[in-house]
């Protein structure tokens, strides 16, 4: 029920990831200036793009939560932000490695993507502290949603501001003077985006399934062993919800 389609999605993700890996290593041409290390591009940029899309999507989910008042949208928004934060860290680390390899420094302030990424990370890193410092689960969901909406709108605005503020001395990967990415690179890049998107979606689905399962187990335990057998959820418990299919008892 809640794990529906999980196996197919897992297989698709595995295939897509293996295909990406094979294409990146064996097929995509080496960059003329940067050599092999440039291939981290196929990890870094897709991860970055997926992260940003996920933050905006989490904001939209949060908006749905406020409109409908349903815990389900809160759970989705929570899980998407959770996984996006992890992707965000991966994006920061790969970005730093790429910067070290191609420019010789672990951190370059005139690379707008990297800088925006850090700022966005700093903002979203406060999602959980904010959420878990609220006692009441209803209010927790509502306040977290308000945060997610504000932060979701912040992401594009922040990108704009940081890009305006950086002097564009480093070549941009797309839209350089000689016409951007060559065809093969573009193809591998697109495959990689699809694979990362699938991976993200897969992890989100797994986490939602896990949360639903946790809820079911708690409900079953309470029914079998009595209310005392199940410890109440603390304020720092991640949201769990009842699956829609479960009988309303």
């Amino acid at each position: 029920m809640h794990g529906k389609g999980l196996r197919a999605l897992t297989l698709a993700t595995l295939v897509a990831l293996s295909a990406t890996f094979a294409l990146v290593v064996f097929w995509a041409p080496n960059d003329a200036d940067q050599g092999f290390i440039q291939k981290i591009f196929y990890l870094h940029v897709p991860v970055a793009i997926i992260t940003l899309i996920a933050y905006v999507v989490a904001g939209i989910f949060a908006w749905r939560q406020l409109k409908t008042g349903s815990r389900e949208w809160d759970l989705r928004s929570y899980v998407v932000i959770h996984i996006a934060l992890i992707f965000n860290i991966v994006g920061l680390l790969t970005g730093a490695i790429w910067a070290k390899a191609s420019w010789g420094h672990w951190w370059v302030w005139d690379e707008p993507t990297l800088v925006s990424f850090l700022i966005v990370f700093l903002l979203y890193a406060t999602y959980q502290p904010l959420r878990f410092s609220i006692e009441d689960p209803e209010r927790q969901a509502r306040y977290a949603s308000v945060f997610a909406i504000i932060a979701g709108a912040f992401v594009p605005l922040n990108f704009m501001a940081v890009r305006m503020a950086t002097s564009l001395v480093h070549p941009r990967t797309f839209g350089t003077a000689n016409g951007g990415l060559p065809g093969e690179m573009m193809f591998v890049f697109l495959v990689s985006i699809v694979a990362m998107g699938l991976l993200f979606w897969l992890i989100v689905k797994y986490e939602i399934a896990q949360k639903t399962l946790t809820w079911q187990i708690r409900a079953l335990r309470r029914r079998l062993l009595g209310d005392d057998a199940v410890a109440p959820l603390g304020r720092s418990a991640a949201p769990t919800i009842a699956p829609q299919e479960a009988p309303a008892r």
């Binding site: 903002l123 406060t126 502290p129 904010l130 609220i134 704009m160 501001a161």
Partner: peptide, 27 residues
């Protein structure tokens, strides 16, 4: 308003506000 009814208001306010204000500070 977001932070007033949390347990750690004085921690939440700066860590949420400062990153949110980065674009305004840049400009």
């Amino acid at each position: 308003a977001l932070a007033i009814r949390t347990r750690s208001r004085d921690l939440i306010v700066p860590i949420v506000t400062l990153p949110l204000l980065v674009p305004a500070l840049i400009a």
